[in-house]
Design a protein around this nucleic acid. Structure first.
Lengths: 203, 203
DNA sequence: AAAAAAATTGAACAATTGTTTAAAACAAAT
DNA sequence: ATTTGTTTTAAACAATTGTTCAATTTTTTT
């Protein structure tokens, strides 16, 4: 029948891959409800029926994209969080570095996630590696901090400072607070500043 | 015909008001595309046709809600930003105080905005008072800062630290990082901490 | 009380959209 | 070459959903 794990794998992968790529693009840009199957077909430049032929339903296709996205996300974070030999500040730096790069390439990405998170779709809970994440070296380091407030704040601050600029980008740019060309440079600057700020909070 | 400004204003306001309240709720929770006119009618407990009777179309109704929302938002921020007599740190404190309260009451609110911002709908640009905002005392204070980086970072950090916890709340709670009962207390804690952190960044 | 205007209702319409089907085109195997 | 299995296509189906309409009820005006 359809995809991927079949025995002979004789299929030309391009159609299936094109649907996936198109789905990634459109779902990310418009969200689940805002995406029409016909949009995906058009983006992939294939016949409408092929979407259902390869993925059964819009819902199933969405789950594939979402699963793949979360997997990637958790994988990336885990690799950074698990390192035993890096300091907390270094981990924050690595996070900033990695995600600024990623978000500069995929500006719609944070909305996509936020969107699904708040639509009741608990994208992480269904995922295997989640425990790994929340018991990682990073979380141990955070928990061991000597600060007179709940150390979870540090996590919130890190991700808040990291993600918000990308969510607010249109506002910042359309109102002349940040010139379009300037945005990338600002984000590069943040790569170095975020760990400094975080260090200031805990030091 | 419809609403509000008409001459005689004889209409029982309750139906129109109920539609507006329902629309606020449903649009905020599900976004524009995810909202069905029938959802709004059901939430308001009125006949489906009345939505179009009072507001012409789903699109128009949405614009009313969006306009009212942005107006409120800009108004609140302006009141804080414009104060000549408060320090930068005090303004951040007032912001945190006001918006933590607001977001605790309306958990879906940040997503709603973020959603529209990134769907190309530049909610601020169409609004009159926007210049006021970006030329406010707050922005002057920010611009006058003696820091060796672009002062816009401070704005991003403030809003990032303020908003992200509400966007990430489901993740935090569903994974035991923050217990549901604990969340409110954490946010109250943040009211005081955010201005301290910001002060640390600029001082 | 009668007439006019406004509000409400249930039904239907029309457009959109996810999905299915049957036939055709294509590729692989015998 | 023929058969078999797979992929693609165009069309249609069915469900959803925004909108409209005609009739009824309610309210306001005269």
């Amino acid at each position: 029948m359809a995809a991927g794990t079949g025995k002979k794998e004789k299929r030309d992968a391009s159609t299936e891959e094109r649907i996936l790529a198109a789905a990634r693009t459109v779902f990310t840009k418009k969200g689940y409800a805002g995406t029409k199957v016909r949009d995906i077909a058009a983006e992939a430049d294939i016949n409408l029926s092929l979407v259902n032929y390869y993925f059964r339903s819009k819902e199933k296709l969405f789950q594939v994209i979402m699963q793949e996205t979360v997997q990637q996300l958790i994988g990336d974070v885990s690799r950074i969080f698990d390192k035993e030999e890096t300091s907390l500040e270094e981990k924050v730096g690595a996070l900033a570095d990695h995600y600024v790069n990623l978000l500069l390439k995929n500006p719609d990405f944070p909305l996509f996630l936020v969107n699904e998170i708040l639509s009741g779709n608990d994208i992480f809970s269904s995922h295997a590696k989640k425990e790994t994440l929340f018991q990682s070296h990073f979380f141990k380091q955070i928990g061991a901090l000597k600060v007179n407030y709940n150390p979870v704040h540090i996590i919130m601050n890190t991700f808040g400072m990291l993600v918000l600029p990308f969510l607010a980008r249109p506002i910042l740019q359309n109102n002349g607070i940040v010139k379009p060309a300037e945005f990338k440079a600002l984000m590069e600057e943040r790569k170095k500043l975020i760990p400094v700020w975080i260090k200031g909070m805990i030091g």
